[in-house]
């Protein structure tokens, strides 16, 4: 088992290096790579059993947490205080969704249930189109890997489908640095989607900096909601 995974990692890493160009710095390149490897080779296979069992056994709670306290929410890998806005409408916590596409018939590579209809189903993970980030970081938090992978599989399945990834930053720091930071966030999501089957010409990235905040407050709760990438499918609300 261990040996099998090792082989897959090596293969995955080789593929990744071929796909991501130009080569990023260790910080920018290595983290998304490792994270996407988890999706490609590790998580996707582990998730099936874990989630299926969890859903049946009720181990994963689906309660929302908007209290602003950083409390762990079981079933997700925590990353950087995400729980402060941990509700289904705001957070890519897959534990909050009744239906996780890509797990039909117990086979993780089965995409028969990743469909356009899922985009319009509020109980489907595909209805979640916002990815949140840590302060001054463009790296993808682990809890968004399944979400991003699911959207990537939808793009892979429908080659004519196109999306805009709109990156945003919170109001702290300088405006133009934030434009660059938000563009890098959108690019991180695009790279991860590319590693999961989406084609480059399906995705356009834009960095809006701090110019278009989702909420206008001046505190961490507002800032967290504003540090985001919004997935916008062309022609789909």
């Amino acid at each position: 088992m261990v040996t099998l995974f090792t082989i897959e990692y090596t293969q995955g890493e080789y593929n990744m290096i071929k796909q991501v160009k130009p080569l990023r710095t260790v910080r920018q390149f290595f983290i998304p790579t490792i994270l996407s490897l988890l999706v490609v080779s590790g998580c996707a296979q582990n998730d099936k059993g874990k989630l299926a069992g969890a859903n049946k056994g009720g181990v994963i709670k689906s309660e929302t947490n908007t209290a602003g306290k950083a409390g762990p929410s079981s079933g997700t890998i925590r990353g950087g205080g995400a729980s402060s806005v941990n509700s289904r409408s705001q957070e890519g916590d897959r534990a909050n969704f009744n239906y996780l596409p890509g797990n039909a018939n117990g086979a993780s590579n089965d995409t028969s249930d990743i469909t356009m209809a899922g985009l319009k189903d509020p109980n489907n993970l595909l209805s979640q189109r916002v990815i949140y980030f840590d302060y001054d970081k463009a790296a993808i938090r682990p809890e968004y890997l399944v979400l991003i992978n699911t959207h990537a599989k939808l793009l892979a399945k429908y080659p004519n489908l196109k999306m805009r990834l709109e990156g945003h930053a919170d109001e702290r720091g300088s405006r133009e640095y934030n434009v660059a930071l938000s563009a890098e966030r959108a690019k991180s999501v695009k790279q991860l989607m590319g590693a999961n089957g989406a084609r480059s010409n399906q995705i356009r990235t834009i960095g809006y900096g701090e110019e278009v905040p989702l909420v206008t407050g001046h505190g961490e709760r507002s800032w967290q909601k504003n540090r985001r990438v919004e997935i916008k499918y062309e022609g789909i609300q």
Binding site: P22, L23, R24, T25, Q28, S174, E176, Y177, V179, A180, L181, E184
Partner: peptide, 11 residues
């Protein structure tokens, strides 16, 4: 092109 770093260069 003036700078070539792999990080953010702006402003």
């Amino acid at each position: 092109q003036i700078t070539t770093s792999s990080a953010i260069d702006t402003e």
